[in-house]
Amino acid sequence: MSLFLQRVFDAMSNGAVYASIAVALTMVFRASGVLNLAQGEMAMMSAYVAALLRSHPPGTGPPGRPFAGSGLFGHLGTPWPVWAAILGSVVFGAALGALVQRYVVRPLGDQDPLPAIGAIVGIYLLFRGLAGKLWSGGVRIVGSPFPSGAEDRFDILGARLRFETIGILVTLGAVLGALTLVQRRTKIGLAFRALVSNPEGARLVGIRVGSVLMVGWAIAAALGALGGGLVANTLNVRPDMMARVLVFSLAAAILGGLGNPLGALVGAFTFALLESLLIGYVSFISSDIALVYTLGILVLALTIRPGGIFGTSLTVDRSRA
């Protein structure tokens, strides 16, 4: 029992990062009909910014502290506190999302999603290549904004629930709650919902579709950056830190029905739990091979329910090429 509980707890922080990327994917997809395969890499770039804000100039920091790289963008003088660094990375992420929407995706138009997918894969490759080059010099460390020592935990029925996990979940919950409020209560949220339900109509009643989309992309990228920054303590910051996360998040977003943030959230924690429990209880499934089983489950789920669990007709309409 305690082992089972432990595995559930362990899944939670993974679930949080899957959820942040999955919800971001869903938001972007809902608004612009584009699956942002670079969502994870944008979060990775943001995590590097957090690491950059945290790092010392060479030779000044105490041993074992976040270190500066050898590249041009190795450090920025005095290290920022963790929360400020993560906040900085979130701001950077939002700017990145807005820029990508404005200068890469928007000029391609919305008639045909295929060029947009091409451009996004281009962004993916560009960021992957640049991150490896700009910040060469091993993994970076951000640290956790929450108490994350060995003793910072509750013991529940013999399982350890770390404060860090609780902090990540609470932060994510609060941000998602705030986003829901923004969507329901503010004018830009109303514009966003109008755009989702009827892009042509929204344009006709005078909504600035481009600006709303830009804000949507910025919020999505900021959410991804937040997820990346919060788990940077456990994942470490590397160019490929988001590769695995992206697969699970995509799977979660699809399972949740792509049009539905709640579905993406449920999907993310479902896959995180599945991953943790499969690895824990099935002897021939190790952490690397769990990815393969995730793919299998996804194919199965799509065969049984092509629209995902919470899918709507929007899912089908929007994905039509």
């Binding site: 699956l35 590769a243 697969v247 995509l250 995730t294 799509l302 994905s319 090429a321």
Partner: peptide, 19 residues
């Protein structure tokens, strides 16, 4: 994947290429 057209095949192939 073809039951849902368009981007889905791309997605499944992404997952395959990683797996």
């Amino acid at each position: 994947s073809l039951r849902l057209p368009g981007a889905y095949l791309a997605l499944l192939t992404v997952a395959m290429a990683m797996a």
